[in-house]
Design a protein around this nucleic acid. Structure first.
Length: 942
RNA sequence: GCGGAGUUGCCGGAGUGGUCAAACGGGACAGGUUUAGGCCCUGUUAGCUUAGUGCUUACGCAGGUUCGAAUCCUGCACUUCGCACCA
């Protein structure tokens, strides 16, 4: 089907307004997350909306008044980033976006004009929004576009503003300090996209414990990841070539590397560099935790650019320390230079942690084992990790840990940290996991932002409410529930405002923008009223806190609301009714990756703000889209845009391919070759449908085919009810095509025509949710109007005849038996004798079925069987019994009597004679010769 | 590291105690149709065996429960996803 035909139908749907809700009758409100605007759309964007559309169309045909809306997300930094890059003359970005614009506009001058306008971020949104609606529409979506908005629209902003005011009233918002990746040169917090190579080599924040060593009237500060090792400290390390400074931090004076002081100034208030400090080596400081004087030694492995540039030495559990100390003991020249030779020689390793694998001095055990030569050995890094890992998992604190002895390392770590902090001997310092630079080249460090706003999911009572909501929600598939529960446990404080980006201003501090996941948790409510807001031209000042209090919560009176918002009472009432009509969201279809953020936040938001009856009812999940087994990405150039779908493949090919090739939540792997097959299948459906439409004629329909088709209807309905779109597709496409094929082979022209007449309309209707364009095309051949506006067919359970279908299966298996036999035998035979089983075996099987329905136990079945008259045929009975019990699958599903079997065979005789060219004789077995069983006649060829 | 999901035939992927050598689709092979190709039709696609409808081996690996396990239990191995300011 070409894109023109598809567009013709899309226009017909639009003109007929069939996807605009009627606002009456039983409702179904279905949503899928709004996509982010960033250029043109590809099939990854197409999956969710297509699957949602199938359900929406089905529900509509089932008689629901369906609301299926869609909007666009623009909040956050990406659009801003695109705009900034274009502004700054980034050629890569300019070319990329020129390319996008060119897909819609051909005139070179116009393209440039549009591109120039992108220097203003909002213009990007304005340009792409209608294009995206067009691209989505090309898939044949049954969306009501009259309620569309973007997350930057005034209505959305007012709603989010209201939401955060409610959070504040509920005391769910907190402020506090928060560490972020930060680039002082750029003056910005850094996301993954802002840091060089961060997508391939992640940068994370790491929390170090700062240990404070009393030194004169100051503190030397050393950072460590292992505060529990304080009991094994023997000395301090500093780098003799590095510059150390004294800084004033609050009321205290600290000594640390110059670089560290600079970093610290982004993490603590009032950090002031006072002076350089020299000649530390050989002096002593008092180690925290053990309150012992320890000496300061030189080391080259201490990097002044990492953490504080001062390291405390724990040779028992730090391979670096152990090796450095060993090296130092052997380097008398050096120690003499600093006059610390005696001190160095005196140092002894102090065991503090016992591990399963490496005893009580893990660092020693490992460095000896791996024969580490000196402190520059590259293996040391690996060993450090190993000691850390083993210590953390199996380590236990020894005697000298005082009150912490006997504790597991994993527990002692936290306790000791707290203990030292409380005594003023420890603090916190954040460092990045690796040295990193922003895209513009500035160094990335960790800064602690104060006055950061958080949503506190651990606020009193909130989690319980959210859990209650979760408990009442249908998840499809339900296996995601556990992951939700885990996520809920782990959710804590989430920073909800950022310094930059598009979006809604934070109501309590207008310098901040509400973060882009926090601002899209209740926007589906807006779909219930957005069209009315537009139609009535409501302004920002109308959509005040009171507006939403009334429309969403009904928590203030109509009079009050009307007075304060300046909105007519009738309209306000209507808005409230709209909200009441459409809420709750009956079904939300989303990407499974959204579970731990968007979906969880959505649940919390609904639990916080709305009455229970407005809580969402169902969430279903879809999976990833990949191509030829690999991820699609713009940089790889392997994306398929929705425009490609429209032009090259056809909307229905995509719709069909995506539904039939994977389950709802499975990964969908696009392969051109398979897409081609899907395209052929669509063609075939079209051809078969056309033929049926042309040949259909009222008449008598063979019950077998009625039964088969009614079964397809039943299955298709049940599958769709359970969101099994793939299985539904199997039924209405492949199974139906198979039945048509069988009918064509089996029926004469007249009967075929009446079968076509019987099934065609219902078949097209069932195809509609999956492949609506194709369905309309076939429908038009023999019907008026639009099939998209038809009702879903009802099935007649009474016409489904298991036995009838079973007998037709028997006929088929007989056919296959004959084929098998032909392969084994001389083909010259002219005659085929079909031998029907002896009568008593039918009775035997009937008894056997009865008995085995109680128990399959051999002894039991045998004993029971021997109670019947079959006892007299002892030997044969036992043999048969053994056969059937061993091959339970051979017990027929249905018992057909001997007479029925004969008459069915007689009916089938002609067809068989025609197909194989034998003369066929039907005989009843005399008990000799060829074995025959009920439903499985013996064959004699020749 | 913590937590989730998974491992089925040539491939994608159904299947959750007997009707399973395993749906459905695809691929490959053989035959028919066709001027040829495509479409279409028929058959084969774990091994062995057979005037037949039988046997053996198989659903990540190793054990266990059961008259009976792809399906339930235990352990192991591997794969994959998420872990917060990122949409």
């Amino acid at each position: 089907m070409d894109s023109k035909t598809a567009q013709k139908w899309q226009k017909s749907w639009k003109d007929a307004q069939i996807f605009v809700p009627k606002e009456k009758g039983k409702k179904y409100f279905i949503t899928t997350p709004y996509p982010y605007i960033s250029g043109s759309l590809h099939i990854g964007h197409g999956r969710a909306v297509t699957e949602t559309d199938i359900i929406a169309r089905y529900k509509r045909m089932k008689g629901f008044d369906v609301l299926y809306p869609l909007s666009f997300h623009i909040t956050g930094t990406p659009v801003l980033g695109i705009s900034a890059a274009i502004k700054s003359g980034n050629q890569k970005m300019i070319q990329l976006y020129k390319g996008y614009i060119k897909t819609y506009i051909s005139d070179e001058k116009e393209v440039q004009k549009v591109l120039d306008s992108f220097k203003e971020p909002q213009k990007i949104v304005d340009f792409f929004t209608p294009k995206m609606i067009e691209e989505y529409s090309g898939l044949g979506l049954s969306v009501d576009w009259s309620r569309t908005f973007t997350s930057g629209d005034m209505t959305h902003q007012q709603m989010v503003d209201w939401q955060f005011k409610k959070y504040k009233q509920l005391d769910y918002l907190k402020t506090g300090d928060h560490p972020v990746l930060y680039c002082p040169e750029d003056g910005n917090a850094m996301g993954e996209d802002d840091i060089k190579d961060a997508d391939s080599n992640k940068v994370e924040k790491q929390e170090y414990t700062l240990l404070k060593f009393k030194f004169e009237d100051k503190f030397l500060v050393a950072g460590t990841l292992r505060p529990e090792t304080v009991f094994g400290q023997t000395n301090l390390w500093i780098n003799p070539d590095a510059k150390y400074v004294e800084v004033k931090v609050g009321d205290e004076n600290w000594i640390l590397s110059e670089k560290a002081a600079w970093k610290l100034s982004f993490q603590k208030k009032q950090v002031k560099i006072l002076r350089e400090i020299k000649d530390l080596i050989g002096k002593t400081a008092i180690a925290p935790g053990i309150n012992k004087e320890i000496p300061i030694f030189p080391s080259t492995f201490t990097n002044p650019d990492r953490v504080t540039g001062i390291v405390t030495s724990v040779p028992s559990d730090a391979p670096f320390d152990y090796v450095a100390l060993r090296d130092l003991k052997e380097n008398k020249e050096l120690t003499d230079k600093y006059g610390i030779t005696d001190e160095v020689q005196k140092i002894k390793v102090i065991p503090i942690i016992k591990t399963q694998r490496y005893g009580d001095s893990a660092a020693l055990a490992l460095t000896d084992k791996h024969k580490i030569k000196n402190q520059n050995d590259p293996k040391l890094d690996e060993l450090t990790k190993e000691v850390y890992k083993e210590g953390y998992h199996s380590g236990v604190m020894l005697e000298n840990a005082g009150e912490f002895k006997g504790l597991k390392v994993s527990i002692a770590k936290e306790k000791i940290k707290q203990h030292l902090t409380k005594k003023g001997l420890a603090d916190i310092f954040y460092e990045t996991t690796r040295i990193a630079y922003s895209r513009s080249g500035g160094e990335v460090i960790v800064a602690v932002l104060d006055n950061q706003w958080f949503i506190d999911f651990n606020s009193e009572g909130w989690k319980q409410k959210a859990k209650k909501l979760l408990g009442g929600i249908d998840l499809v598939p339900d296996s995601y529930r556990k992951q939700f529960e885990e996520t809920f446990e782990w959710l804590d404080k989430r920073p909800c405002a950022r310094r930059r980006g598009l979006g809604t201003k934070f109501p309590f501090d207008k310098d901040w923008i509400i973060e882009s996941l926090s601002d899209s948790t209740i926007y589906m409510t807006l779909y219930t009223i957005q069209d009315l807001i537009i139609k009535n031209n409501l302004k920002r000042e109308n959509l005040s806190e009171d507006f939403f209090d009334y429309v969403y919560l009904n928590s203030i009176s109509l009079d009050e609301a009307s007075k304060s918002t300046g909105i007519d009472k009738e309209l306000l009432k209507q808005l409230r009714q709209r909200f009441e009509r459409w809420m709750p969201n009956d079904h939300r279809h989303t990407f499974s990756l959204h579970l731990s953020n968007h979906l969880s936040f959505m649940i919390f938001a609904h639990a916080a703000l709305f009455e229970e009856k407005y809580w969402p009812k169902m969430i279903s999940f879809h999976g990833l889209i990949v191509r030829d087994g690999g991820k699609m990405s713009k940089s790889k150039g392997n994306t398929i845009s929705l425009l490609d779908i429209k032009e090259k493949w056809g909307a229905d090919t995509f719709r069909f391919y995506i539904t039939q090739s994977t389950t709802l939540d499975g990964t969908f792997d696009w392969k051109d070759k398979e897409a081609k097959n899907a395209q052929n299948t669509i063609k075939k459906i079209l051809a078969e449908g056309k033929q049926a439409a042309l040949q259909r004629k009222k008449g008598v329909v063979k019950p077998l085919y009625k039964s088969k088709f009614e079964r397809i209807k039943k299955n298709a309905t049940n599958y769709l009810e359970n969101l099994k779109t793939r299985e539904y597709n199997n039924q209405v496409v492949f199974n139906t095509l198979t039945v048509i094929k069988e009918a064509k082979k089996d029926l004469d022209e007249k009967h075929l025509a009446s079968f076509y007449d019987y099934m065609l309309d219902d078949w097209i209707k069932m195809l509609t949710p999956a492949i609506p364009h194709t369905a309309e095309e076939i429908w038009a051949h023999s019907n008026e109007g639009l099939v998209s506006a038809q009702s879903w067919p009802k099935y007649d359970n009474g016409l489904i005849d298991d036995k009838l279908e079973y007998m037709s299966e028997l006929a088929e298996s007989l056919r296959l038996d004959i084929i098998d036999l032909q392969k084994l035998v001389d083909v010259n035979a002219k005659k085929l004798t079909i031998i029907i089983s002896e009568k008593w075996k039918y009775d035997f099987l009937s008894k056997l079925k009865d008995i085995t329905s109680d128990s399959m136990d051999y002894q039991y079945v045998m004993a029971e069987m021997m109670k019947t008259e079959h006892k007299k045929r002892g030997k044969e009975t036992v043999a048969l019994l053994q056969y059937y019990l061993k091959n339970i699958s051979k017990i027929p599903k249905f018992l057909v009597s001997q007479e029925e079997e004969i008459s069915a065979l007689k009916e089938n005789k002609k067809n068989l004679e025609k197909e194989f060219g034998y003369q066929i004789e039907i005989k009843i077995s005399d008990g000799k010769g060829k074995k025959a069983l009920p439903g499985r006649p013996g064959l004699l060829l020749g």
